[in-house]
């Protein structure tokens, strides 16, 4: 699905990602954990194509294509989706119009015609149910005046609508109460399939009780410094990150 090799990225001249390697196969769920400021959101942003970040070294291959060579929109059209840590409010653009435009842009890229209005509305209804999103929100401006939880559910709703091949969830769980967490996790689980992969960035082990990962990685200081089975998340929850940092420093030294 995606293969990241020796990725280095800087922002404002400061190197944040410092030789990151990651390989995700179709159908797999990878969790990325790590202390604040370790570069998790930077990785997500670089993969999605944010222009503030400069890739200085390394390669990313996405289903055989050079991901770093594509515009953000073409990455999305190729099947990459990023659920933002901080979803953006866009006053004046209705959720529905936004989604219709997005879906049709992706269809056009694939050489398909625009979706029929009634099929689109049926799809909206179905996917809203998936994340228990209030139908009224669809008519409102994108994320405007949404609560924190509604914004996160709206990200998952969009993901469900766009049916990506690889979804990156950047701390979709933070700020959610336990009910909202369950709804979000449930939405993700329903979308799991042998063809679809997930990279789940999280601070907390509790999300991984609901979305059970195949692999857990620890990102620290711009690198993946440890990988392991899902039990690694529990260990991190118990012991914190200091032992990992110590280990990593020893390796580096």
């Amino acid at each position: 699905m995606i293969s990241i090799n020796n990725l280095h990225a800087s922002v404002e001249g400061k190197e944040i990602l410092r030789g990151l390697n990651l390989e995700v196969k179709p159908g797999e769920v990878h969790a990325i954990m790590g202390p604040n400021g370790s570069g998790k959101s930077t990785l997500a942003s670089v993969l999605a194509g944010r222009e503030d970040y400069e890739v200085t070294q390394g390669t990313v291959s996405f289903n055989g294509k050079d991901l770093l060579d594509l515009s953000p929109e073409d990455r999305a059209r190729e099947g990459l989706f990023l659920a933002f840590q901080y979803p953006v409010e866009i006053p004046g653009v209705s959720n529905i119009n936004f989604l219709k435009t997005a879906i049709n842009a992706i269809r056009e890229y694939k050489g398909e015609g625009p979706m029929e209005a009634k099929d689109f509305l049926a799809l909206v209804k179905e996917k809203q149910k998936l994340v228990e999103l209030d139908g009224k929100l669809a008519g409102r401006s994108v994320n405007e005046g949404f609560s924190g939880g509604e914004k996160k559910r709206n990200e998952i709703f969009q993901m469900a609508m766009l049916e990506p091949k690889l979804a990156i969830l950047d701390e979709t769980d933070s700020g959610l109460d336990i009910d909202a967490l369950r709804i979000v996790a449930n939405g993700v689980n329903k979308l799991r399939s042998p063809e679809r992969s997930f990279i789940v960035v999280t601070h907390y082990q509790r999300l991984l009780d609901y979305i059970v990962p195949d692999v857990v990685h620890v990102l620290w200081n711009g690198r993946i410094v440890k990988s392991g089975p899902k039990e690694l998340a529990l260990e991190l929850e118990e012991k914190g990150y200091d032992w990992i940092k110590a280990e990593a420093n020893t390796v580096e030294a």
Partner: peptide
């Protein structure tokens, strides 16, 4: 950027 990450051209 948000719109573009959803597949909408610049």
């Amino acid at each position: 950027f948000y719109l573009r990450t959803r597949g909408i051209g610049e």
